[in-house]
Design a protein around this nucleic acid. Sequence first.
DNA 1: TCTGGGGTCCTAGGACCC
DNA 2: TCTGGGGTCCTAGGACCC
Length: 414
Amino acid sequence: MSRLIALVDSNNFYVSCERVFNPKLEGRPVIVLSSNDGCAVARSNEAKALGIKMGTPAFQMRDLIEKHQIQIFSSNYALYGDLSNRVMQTLQNFTPEVEVYSIDEAFVGLTGEVSDHALSIMRTTVKRWTGIPVSIGLAPTKTLAKIANRIAKRGEGTYILRDPDQVLENLPVGEVWGIGRQSTKKLTAYGITTALKLKQADLAWIKRQMGIVGVRIVKELRGTSCLPLELIPQPRKSCCVSRSFGHPVTDLEDLREAIATHTARAAHKLRRDNLSASLLAVFIATNRFNADLPYYRNSGTVGLSAPTNHTITLTKAALKALGPLYRVGDHYQKAGVWLTELTPAHEIQQDLFINHKSCEKGRKLMEVMDALNSQFGAGTVRCAAQGFEQSWRTKAEMRSPRYTTRWDELLIVP
DNA sequence: TCTGGGGTCCTAGGACCC
DNA sequence: TCTGGGGTCCTAGGACCC
């Protein structure tokens, strides 16, 4: 029995999430902005038709927005994350072979004869149960499923790739999954301009030019699966929290608040995933687009004496790392914290020099803090180092309500 | 005025060891 | 003048993804 892979991909996912709770947005141009209301990260088909490209900065779209009455939203990750879970759970209803690949995509393993009708049922069920429209492409490998999905998206919403070569011949090589800008440039220089030419390329030559990654892509195009479904999510290896500031920051005190806040978020993520970190890095940067001011970025690393996910321990380390990075007079635009060398929290090597009693106390404190913050909202209990005014905070001026995760933001039907 | 955030994997080259 | 060979580990940086 043949094993096939379906790629289920939400259409314009963030925009679709906004539409679920705001049906007036249907049929109108809608854009969702990146964090800090910086640039377009999701566009409705109507917005795409107006020529708005992925990643266009908000200030460059001002006239178009005004002229066409485009609806603009800040990113609302609480909402998108929750709706994503609902979509994934719906897919799990059909088969346990679901690999959650990103917030809006899943690879689904299917066996035997799969009809267009079956895919269509999957699609309409997701729409009916979650309100999110998806497209489904089916093929023998992940790379081909990605291509099938593109066709599904432009057509009926589902597509089974039965005659790959005909499709590959009309697909620019840069559209193949895993072929980025650099590889496109290199391949094009050698006359490999379409996916079909890539599929027919000499494997030894590909190995020399693109390494093992390139070989895998070519084999996948030929129908040999090299990228298996990963049904059990691998534990993450690092955890990074960084944000742009709502406006340029010059004070060390503001930087300290931001770093403490990002550290608290990162530590919380670790506790949620039951991980501890051994290494912490802090980085700060000025605006690289501003030609009038010097561009400065720097980072500093601190090793922890024992792996930890304790907010206060990590915050102390982070603030220590920040100190030497700061320069008076620079206009900072961004700061972040990066935790690495992650290990499962329960497998930690006992440290001879650690006071176990205070360690246990610290763990309980975090437990209570997480419980309070979960019940009453993030930031209810926090370190004083995180500040109160937080004037540096990231912009999110057009965020919709967190309809599904906050009681006080429920949709009210008059 | 205004340009996102969070990841992974691979490779080359250096340090080091026997 | 001659100056091994093979292996591992680590790190930085590149490339790519959504």
